[in-house]
């Protein structure tokens, strides 16, 4: 007698969220991207097909980062000093989505200029991050949101302590927001509630439950993502959002990627190890339910993209 394959039937599913708008949708993107929509744990296609392919974003910055590993300068080179060029190169490297990180040196004018330049240089949907200081984020993201009206950009990052201005400007200009919480299911849920309480529809929120790099707390991020997905499938509406995580940022902060000298010999070749660090961090998160992984090295992008392709093909 054939075995009955155990299939979970879940009452809930993840909301489908669309990022970016084409000319027909009121923007100028070459295409928009839809993520989410799943009704199973990640890639369990024998239960139900995964409706939307998880995507890879490449992180670029508004000005050449000082603290990035020299290993990242190799592939990106001169383009790192020119966000528009960098955007083109990232698109060529296989990005589905661009993350443009503004910096503390940016002014509202420079931020708007850079965002416009990046939108002009690449047809990919865009995520824009403030530099990560509440006041500065708000100062930059409000004019950026107005300048990019209609493009359905993801504005980030909303955190417990600073979300209201970003959400307000997203509402006024038709954008989405990234809601980041520090590796905790209930905090993630709470922030989603707070944001949707302000009136932003749920299908315009992407949640970022935060993660750690391999060796630096990835197990917390991994389990929180599995739990968020489970809660969502069980019907908890406030967790039914696609997830976006930043393995690139985390992995390239780790000593294993950052440092080439004075480290144990057992760590092996620096460059290969660094790419492995980013790739494996991303892979573990893809397996635990990431819908967007933000990466930095083109080689990792290639490998993770191939892996997602295989997972989707089953």
């Amino acid at each position: 007698m054939p075995i009955e394959i155990p299939k979970d039937k879940w009452p809930g599913s993840i909301k489908a969220v669309t990022i970016g708008a084409t000319a027909a949708e009121g923007g100028t993107r070459a295409k928009s991207i839809t993520i989410g929509g799943q009704n199973t744990m990640p890639y369990l296609q024998f239960e139900k097909p995964t409706p939307n392919t998880p995507v890879i974003a490449i992180e670029i910055k508004s000005r050449k980062p000082e603290d990035w590993s020299p290993l990242l300068e190799k592939p990106w080179g001169e383009a790192m000093a020119d966000p528009a060029e960098w955007a083109k190169k990232a698109e060529a490297a296989g990005a589905d989505l661009l993350v443009l990180a503004l910096t503390l040196e940016d002014t509202p004018d420079s931020a708007v200029k850079t965002v416009k330049a990046v939108l002009a240089a690449s047809g990919l949907p865009l995520v824009v991050w403030g530099p990560g200081q509440a006041e500065k984020d708000n100062e930059l993201l409000v004019p950026v949101a107005e300048a990019a009206k209609g493009e359905k950009v993801v504005l980030g990052v909303c955190e417990d302590k600073n979300y209201r201005t970003i959400v307000a400007t997203a509402m006024a200009n038709g954008h989405l927001v990234e809601a980041r919480t520090p590796m905790d299911v209930n905090l993630a849920k709470q922030l989603n509630i707070l944001i949707s309480d302000m009136g932003l529809p749920m299908d315009r929120i992407v949640m970022d439950p935060t993660t750690g790099a391999l060796g630096y707390g990835i197990e917390y991020g991994y389990s929180v993502m599995e739990r968020l997905r489970l809660a969502a499938l069980q019907g908890d509406a406030m967790t039914q959002l696609p997830m976006m995580v930043t393995p690139g940022f985390e992995a390239w902060k780790a000593k294993e990627s950052k440092v080439g000298e004075g480290v144990p010999e057992a760590w092996g070749d620096w460059e290969a190890r660094a790419v492995n660090w980013e790739t494996l961090t991303a892979m573990a998160l893809v397996e635990s339910g990431a819908d967007v992984v933000v990466l930095r090295h083109p080689e990792s992008v290639k490998r993770v993209k191939a892996a997602i392709g295989e997972l989707m093909a089953a």
Binding site: N138, V142, E146, R164, T165, V167, A168, T169, A172, M198
Partner: peptide
């Protein structure tokens, strides 16, 4: 829009 954001946030 400018004041609205401030009222909302």
């Amino acid at each position: 829009r400018s004041w609205g954001i401030q009222l909302v946030d």
